[in-house]
Design a protein around this nucleic acid. Structure first.
Lengths: 256, 256
DNA sequence: TTACATTGTGTCACCATAACGCAATGAATA
DNA sequence: TATTCATTGCGTTATGGTGACACAATGTAA
């Protein structure tokens, strides 16, 4: 009940803390077991899964609010974040779902700022899957990873927001290095390739991929090879941060 | 005085009409006399030039509000518009300038929604220069074109917004056809080339440009040649709208 | 010891691009 | 009327990136 009061306060007085009409939604990508995954929240009251989202504090930088939201859901700091699109359809947050939601938590719809229209800023994030501790927020019953190829039913236009995010990530992949945010410190070439294939949703030629990646100069080969694998052991690589950052700014060439 | 009352109402009661905290700013590009130009407004009260901007009506699609703003400043309908970035720094609209402004029109700063923080959505537009009738709004003394290479002093972070818009336009130029929105119905190859050179800010090889443009398939050569020119008369071209739109979706290759 | 899936490196044909050549055009000039 | 000449239209060549594929090296499993 203490919890419900806090929630009720949030929904009836949140407009005193946050900018009205503006929300931030995050598409958080992680890579695990050769699969690209997205972090979603199971809403308690509305039903369906939702992108981690939140609002902008009255004196907070918009980017900082996205960072804050991600920190709360993943436990991670200084996440790679990119604003990719704003969703401004007046009907995007249908009144229906909010009404049901507010009724469930005992707030009269017409006195809540949540009942008003929201324009939402879409961010996508790339995180190291192994370092994330998913934690649901107040209004969520669960916080879980989903394969981007097996997404559950999602609320509002969140599936559409996800689609746009993925499309933007794929574009980004053509011009900027991406792996650093999604992989651990060291990795093999086949692992890196799998990441690219998963994001792009298509297979790439092993040999051409290696040649192109090495040509970018953002990789450093370690003397170490992967142990305990059947067949020939691949080398480990790490990113050359200097060149990696240069490539982030200046851009690269595309992949097949 | 009638005018001042209207303005005062807008600044003291506008929040009843518009979404709070959100504005829309447009970078309107036009091409004239081999020069890329931007449409700016001279503010009456604040001093300095500003991007045409406005707010989102409570039940209006965000894109529609940008279209409305452009219609008011240029007289044009169905303008090519692209949302390119959101500017969310809490300090971007400094209180200083708004305070001075509101004082000048006789509105107490602390009662106006305009005094609050704004997150602004940046759009850029491509228009046919010859069809535009620049018209200033209430709070502006003038509405004029400026060469992107000779911009005047601009208010707030509007110069920064312009810079981002130009950078995005240049990116866009690499993958999507652009001329249709900036040129008239028919044009010569050198004219089209000048447009590209002006946007990119560098010279291109005349012969390679022609070959590449024709290879895209978005152009149709007319039987007509330009009259009254010294030396060899160039052919006129028009866009093949079918292929043009296809290229808009699927993308193209880049220019040098 | 052998089999075999996987890795590292190399080759080749193809295509887009950048750089440049040259003849055709047609108004301006002599 | 003949000539000049900047500009246009079309073509050629060298280069480098890309996709498709070959082959030897590796190292565990049979």
């Amino acid at each position: 009940m203490e919890f419900k009061k806090e929630l009720k306060d949030h929904y009836s007085k949140g407009h005193e803390k946050y900018l009205r009409h503006i929300s931030v939604d995050c598409v958080i990508f992680g890579f695990h077991e050769n699969d690209l995954k997205v972090l979603l929240l199971k809403t308690k009251y509305a039903g369906g899964w939702a992108l981690p989202g939140g609002f902008i504090l009255k004196n907070e930088h918009m980017d900082a609010s996205a960072q804050r939201i991600l920190k709360e859901r993943t436990g991670l700091d200084e996440i790679f974040l990119e604003q990719f699109h704003v969703f401004g359809d007046p009907d995007r947050s249908t009144k229906k779902i909010n009404q049901q939601f507010l009724k469930n938590i005992g707030v009269k719809a017409d006195i809540s700022w949540m009942f008003e229209r929201f324009v939402t800023i879409g961010y996508y994030a790339l995180v190291d899957f192994t370092k994330v501790t998913p934690s649901p927020d107040n209004i969520s019953a669960a916080c879980e990873w989903f394969s981007i190829y097996q997404l559950p039913e999602m609320i509002l236009d969140h599936h559409h927001i996800f689609d746009e995010a993925l499309q933007n990530l794929r574009m980004q992949l053509n011009f900027h290095p991406v792996g650093f945010n999604l992989l651990g410190k060291k990795f093999t070439m086949p692992e890196l390739q799998k990441l690219y294939e998963t994001i792009l949703g298509k297979e790439l030629d092993r040999r051409n991929f290696q040649r192109k990646m090495l040509a970018t100069g953002i990789l450093k080969r370690l003397d170490e090879t992967k142990k305990g694998v059947a067949h020939k052991a691949p080398f480990y690589y790490k990113f050359d941060l200097r060149n990696y950052k240069k490539a982030l700014k200046s851009g690269m060439h595309s992949f097949e």
